[in-house]
C-alpha cells in the first residue's frame, strides 16, 4: 500500500484533495502510488477542461433524439442507455467487450457500448435496437431473425441484430463466408448461429443494396 502525503493544498483543478477523494469514492486504504502526481501534472495544462469525478452535463443523440443527462465520466454508454434513458434493448452480459450483447452502432460502426464512455459518445450518432423498427414495421434484419428462428432465449438477439445491421450496411451482398467472419463479435450460448447466418443472408436480399437507415 502506498503512503500518501496529506495536505490541504488546493490543486488548480479547482478541487481540493478532500473533495476529490470524497467525489471519487476512494477509501483511505485504496493503494495510490502517486499522491500528488495528478495535481502537479495538471499545472502546465490548465487550458484543458477537466470533468468529474462528479456528475457532468452530457448531451447524447440516440436514434435521432437528443437527451440531456447528468452523469459521472465513469458511466459507460451501455449504462447510460439502460439505467438513465430506459433503453434496455442493449444487454449487459460480460461488460468486458467479449460477448457482443451490448452492440450499438456509433457513427455507422458497430461497437460494444460497454467499452465506450458516455462522455465520449457525445456528438456522435448512436443507434440502438429500439430505433430500428419504423412506424410499427420491423427492420428487415429483425423480420429475418423472426422468420429464420435466429433466437432461442433471445438475450443475445439485440446485439446480434445491431451487429448484423452494421455488417449489411458495409456488405450489402455478403457471401456466407463474409457473414461468418462479420458476425464474429457476438456470442450466442443457445447456439443459434445457423439461424442468424440464414437471417443475415435473407435480410440482405430484402434490403437489396441499402438505404435502410436513410
Amino acid at each position: 500500500m502506498g503512503k500518501r502525503k496529506r495536505t490541504d493544498t488546493k490543486p488548480e483543478t479547482g478541487l481540493s484533495r478532500r473533495e476529490f477523494l470524497k467525489g471519487a469514492g476512494l477509501a483511505v486504504s485504496t493503494p495510490l502510488l502517486v499522491g500528488e502526481g495528478v495535481a502537479e501534472a495538471a499545472r502546465p495544462a490548465t487550458d484543458v477542461k477537466i470533468l468529474g469525478p462528479g456528475k457532468v452535463p452530457l448531451l447524447l443523440r440516440v436514434n435521432g433524439a437528443k437527451h440531456s443527462l447528468s452523469l459521472e465520466p465513469r458511466v459507460t454508454l451501455l449504462d447510460a442507455l439502460r439505467d438513465h434513458l430506459d433503453l434496455t434493448g442493449s444487454k449487459k452480459v460480460c461488460d468486458r467487450a467479449t460477448c457482443g450483447a451490448c452492440t450499438v452502432i456509433l457513427d455507422g460502426l458497430p461497437v460494444y457500448s460497454c467499452s465506450v464512455l458516455s462522455v465520449e459518445a457525445q456528438g456522435k450518432e448512436i443507434q440502438t435496437v429500439e430505433g430500428l423498427a419504423k412506424a410499427g414495421q420491423l427492420h428487415p434484419v429483425q423480420a429475418a431473425f423472426v422468420e429464420n428462428d435466429a433466437q432461442q432465449c433471445g438475450f443475445c438477439t439485440p446485439g446480434f441484430v445491431m451487429a448484423c445491421t452494421a455488417f449489411l450496411d458495409k456488405h450489402p451482398n455478403p457471401t456466407p463466408e463474409e457473414v461468418r467472419r462479420g458476425l464474429g463479435g457476438n456470442l450466442c450460448r443457445c447456439g443459434t448461429y445457423v439461424g442468424v447466418r440464414a437471417a443475415v443472408l435473407q435480410a440482405a436480399k430484402t434490403i437489396k443494396g441499402g438505404g435502410i437507415h436513410g
Partner: peptide, 11 residues
Amino acid sequence: MDAFEYASPTT
C-alpha cells in the same frame, strides 16, 4: 469502476 476525473486534450 472507481470514479475518475476526465480530460480530453487536443494536442
